[in-house]
Design a binder for these strands. Structure first.
Length: 422
RNA sequence: GUGGGCGUAGCUCAGGUGGUAGAGCACAGGAUUGUGGCUCCUGUGGUCGGGGGUUCAAAUCCCCUCGCCCACCCCA
């Protein structure tokens, strides 16, 4: 048997409905804020990610799906979305359009990682990017869009965790401060942190080992080391969010795994699911476009892990999506078959889901089938009904049925199931 | 990369000391004429992860291999 590639997955009905609903909701909310979708290639020149995400990061150093095409060019399946957006912004001259540029994206990303719950090698992200605005208000808007989206999915316990990474110059200064402060206790750090000491010192900050956490807790937060401008910026973001009554928690130890972030960085976690379950991450990246050879265009954005998001979706939203009423159309005999399909068209045009019975089974078996697919109503179309230009409308929940004139069926059914969806 | 667990029907699993495969669920049909949900009957469905070895005989014993899951690490 041929099986799916490790780390990929088949998303089957009915779960696929949730994906569709989440994506539709994302488009609606983000378009409302002015973010139109940009659809980008899933493969890019390898160099794009090396230069943006950062050579020292785990993503680039050991997690990319990199391969040579038939002409020997090094290509990589995108491990994240922002780099491609930046590339497209420069390549398509999007800086010539009215600024700022608001873009959203969604789709599969690829990272060669060791498998674990909630993590896949092909996973999907939904994100937005706001390019060409460097004010705190821009950050607030992006976070507000995020918050609005999550509220539309009926989340009520999610927390935005915010930190200030400062500018790149600040970061170098901070790393020096951090190392100086930890130096006396360097031997007490865990093995991984001693490795991070040289390779990626910032990552010591979010080590999960208890002793490391304690040591780190006594160090100076990044926010205290950053420039006045950076501090003013992120403080204004926090205030702006509070003014909008968006719950924010400042987390002095929050760092992120990509090199391009500066100043505002944030994550969204669900307290109910534990502090480690990050379903969204993002931040400001004012040097990214210029680092790629474009003009100096500031940017801020985030990416939501769609797989995880769907994993933790509130039940209320799930039911709203999954529990839509179904009407089963059951023809009896060849005469009725064509007429039944005509009826389904009318029903779906009326906003209902109305699958028809097409296997030619008996009425008894057809009703069993209607029951199994969760139909609320069955429409029976036999010879006598066709003769009288009627349809037998059977309420499967109540067990009642009545003959209804063909022209009145759609309205009758809509009332029976409570309008139906759109 | 390190450590642990597991691979028998679509799913959940039974199959002491070797005798060539089962249950429940699911799916399909039926219990006379055009009426579901309960019940009953019947049926479809398996290279027992793969390969090799021991044996008259292996799902069962031995060796190798592949795959999956969980934790660490890292991240979304």
């Amino acid at each position: 048997m041929i099986r799916k590639v490790k780390g990929t997955r088949d998303i089957l009905p009915p779960e696929s409905r949730l994906w569709g609903a989440v994506e539709a909701k994302a488009r609606r909310v983000f378009e409302g804020f002015g973010y139109d979708e940009i659809r980008l290639p899933v493969m890019e020149p390898t160099e794009l990610f090396v230069r943006t995400v950062g050579e020292g990061t785990d993503i680039v150093s050991k997690e990319m799906y990199t391969f040579a095409d038939r002409k020997g060019r090094s290509l990589t399946l995108r491990p994240e979305g922002t780099a491609g957006v930046a590339r497209a912004f420069i390549e398509n001259g999007l800086g010539q359009r009215p600024q700022p540029m608001r873009l959203s994206y969604m789709g599969p990303m690829f990272r060669y990682e060791k498998m674990q719950r909630g993590r896949y090698r092909q996973f999907s992200q939904i994100g937005i990017e706001l390019l060409g605005a460097s004010t705190p208000q821009a950050d607030v808007e992006v976070l507000l869009a995020l918050h609005t989206f999550l509220k539309a999915l009926e989340f009520d316990d999610l927390v935005i965790v915010l930190n200030n990474l400062g500018d790149p110059e600040d970061r170098d200064r901070f790393i020096k401060v951090l190392k100086d402060e930890l130096m006396p206790n360097r031997e007490k750090l865990c093995g991984d942190c001693r490795r991070r000491w040289t390779e990626n010192p910032l990552r010591i900050l979010d080590c999960k080992v208890e002793t490391c956490r304690e040591l780190v807790a006594h160090t100076t937060p990044v926010a205290d080391v950053v420039s006045d401008e950076a501090r003013t910026h992120v403080d204004a973001v926090a205030q702006g969010l509070e003014a909008l009554e968006i719950p924010v928690r400042v987390a002095p130890r929050l760092v992120r795994g990509l090199d391009y972030y500066l100043r505002t960085v944030f994550e969204v976690i669900s307290p109910a699911l534990g502090e480690d379950t990050v379903i969204c991450g993002g931040g400001r990246y004012d040097r990214l476009i210029s680092d790629l050879g474009g003009r100096a265009v500031p940017g801020i954005g985030f990416a939501i892990g769609e797989d995880r998001l769907i994993d933790v979706l509130p039940d209320s939203f799930k039911h709203r999506v999954l529990d839509v009423p179904v009407v089963a159309v059951l023809p009896l005999g060849d005469e009725a078959a064509g007429s039944a399909l005509g009826l389904t068209v009318q029903l779906i045009e009326g906003g209902l889901r109305a699958p028809a019975e097409v296997t030619g089974r008996s009425l008894k078996a057809s009703l069993k089938w209607a029951n199994k697919i969760g139909a609320a109503v069955a429409l029976i179309l036999g010879e006598s009904e066709i003769e009288k230009n009627q349809v037998l409308v059977k309420d499967l929940r109540e067990g009642t049925q009545e003959a209804v004139a063909r022209d009145a069926v759609v309205e009758r059914v809509r009332r029976l199931v409570g309008e139906g969806d759109s």
